[in-house]
């Protein structure tokens, strides 16, 4: 596995991400799904890493931990939270932070990430990543929550850019500027979800390339790629839904290539949570991502030669 050295230059000559000796490898990874547990152990596919949703493994024992232990012995691991509710109005749940700390301690993942979104309110959990307005009040709150998270977990976290379907009249900052200030103030890294950048770009008629270019790309520690579904809004304009239930679209692969040109080789997750196909289908998408990572590596070698 190749690890990046700090402050390498990308093909464009701009400094690329600061990396960490224990980070994920610059390869493709897959979301770990129970229906693939046994096949993964039997075949040990050539993959850079696996990623789990933290909340699925906050159970006492049984098959989930049985298999995850064995898979962790063989692969680097990313733990991705979906329930911390960093964008919530209320305080973070200290019990949940404790549980996450225990899980991270147990599996020693190379990466921990969460979302710029909220999913809880008043003690209830909604199992969806809900949007927030971008302004000074929400910025302070999100930064405070990320500070607390990083202090409690005693590690740097990556924050994922969201896929959203609506915007808020109360927003005074654009999303990229909002994220850039969070990263600058908290020192957290960025999980660049290229599918989310594309989905939100179409949904809000933003240029996804300009959006990505405006993010603090030197702090990207991981990329997510996924599939979306197509719908229409009330005026008939395209409304893309981030379903994680389909193959990665051609337009998202193109945007991924654009991002890699700027980032250099970056750990990339193929994210599939619904209509889960056979492992071989996901491995083919992972190989496709690794070809692009290879091109990014080659471009960089040519520049430095």
């Amino acid at each position: 596995m190749t690890m990046q050295t700090p402050f390498e230059l990308s093909a464009r000559g701009v400094p690329v991400r600061r990396t960490y000796s224990d980070g994920l490898p610059n390869r493709a990874g897959l979301g770990l799904k129970p229906q693939h547990f046994a096949e993964i152990l039997a075949t040990e596919p050539d993959l850079g890493f696996f990623e789990i949703h933290a909340e699925n493994y906050l159970v006492a024992g049984g098959p989930f931990h049985h298999y995850l232990h064995r898979i962790r012995d063989r692969y680097p691991l990313s733990i991705h939270g979906v329930g911390l509710s960093i964008g919530a109005e209320g305080p973070l749940d200290p019990t949940h932070l404790d549980r996450l700390a225990t899980l991270l301690d147990r599996y020693q993942p190379q990466s921990f990430s969460e979302h710029l979104a909220w999913s809880t309110h008043g003690g209830a959990f909604f199992n969806d990543l809900l949007p927030l307005p971008y302004n000074r009040v929400t910025l302070d709150r999100v930064c405070d929550h990320i500070d607390r998270t990083q202090e409690h977990l005693r590690r740097r976290m990556l924050l994922e850019n969201p896929a959203t379907y609506i915007e808020f009249a109360a927003s005074t900052l654009d999303e990229a500027a909002f994220i850039a200030e969070i990263v600058q103030r908290t020192g957290c890294g960025l999980l660049l979800d290229v599918n989310n950048a594309y989905v939100s770009g179409v949904n809000h008629r933003r240029d996804p390339q300009a959006y990505i270019a405006a993010l603090p790309l030197s702090e990207v520690g991981e990329i997510h790629l996924a599939g979306f579904a197509e719908d229409r809004d009330a005026a008939g304009a395209p409304l893309l839904i981030d379903t994680h239930g389909a193959a990665i679209a051609a337009a998202v692969w193109e945007l991924y290539a654009f991002a890699l040109e700027r980032l250099g080789p970056t750990p990339t997750l193929i994210e599939r949570d619904n209509d889960i196909p056979p492992l071989s289908v996901l491995l083919a998408e992972a190989r496709c991502a690794e070809r692009w990572i290879g091109y990014a590596q080659r471009d960089r070698l040519e520049i430095s030669a």
């Binding site: 909604f126 809900l130 379907y165 609506i166 808020f168 008629r205 809004d233 009330a234």
Partner: peptide, 29 residues
């Protein structure tokens, strides 16, 4: 209140995506 769309379309249709995600995912669970 306070939800907007770039094209001025009725935000209720867009909000319905969240409503559907929450309802369907919890019933699926």
């Amino acid at each position: 209140a306070g939800l907007t769309a770039w094209n001025g379309s009725d935000p209720a249709r867009r909000f319905a995506v969240y409503r559907n995600n929450v309802v369907v995912s919890l019933i699926d669970a």
